[in-house]
Amino acid sequence: MTTVAVGFDYSEDSRAAADWAAAYARERDCALVLVHAMGILEQASFEDARASLAAAGADLAARSGLADARVHAHVDYGDACSVMLRCIEAPISASLLVVGTRGHHAHAGLLLGSTSLELAEHALVPVVIVPGQR
């Protein structure tokens, strides 16, 4: 089964990306992996972060009509771009990466190489960049 990985940092843009990815996964019969990158200063423990992400995944499944079993949560240490790129490799082996246009640090991203643009440059699989509401 094809796997779609979507970056999720709880920002509005990442929620829009997750909704788009869920709709795509439902239409194409894909598995969906919700991915959260943990930085140095993340307050939650790894287990708490995973539980929060699993809850967000369950919400997304309910909202999108995607079967629960098709939605997975994946927390990894690192910056968003590196974590998404690692999702291309086993065991996730994503064949499509989805991210929002801007995360929580949009103003810096415009200048300092946004995650979405960097992913598009380095990913060996297609990348979809979903615009949030403006």
Partner: peptide, 20 residues
């Protein structure tokens, strides 16, 4: 290009580059 962007970002007042 990164050096140019970092300099410009700082001279614009700086801020958070990412979560950390």
């Amino acid at each position: 290009s990164y050096l140019d962007e970092l300099g410009a970002f700082c001279y614009a007042g700086g801020g958070d580059i990412d979560e950390d």
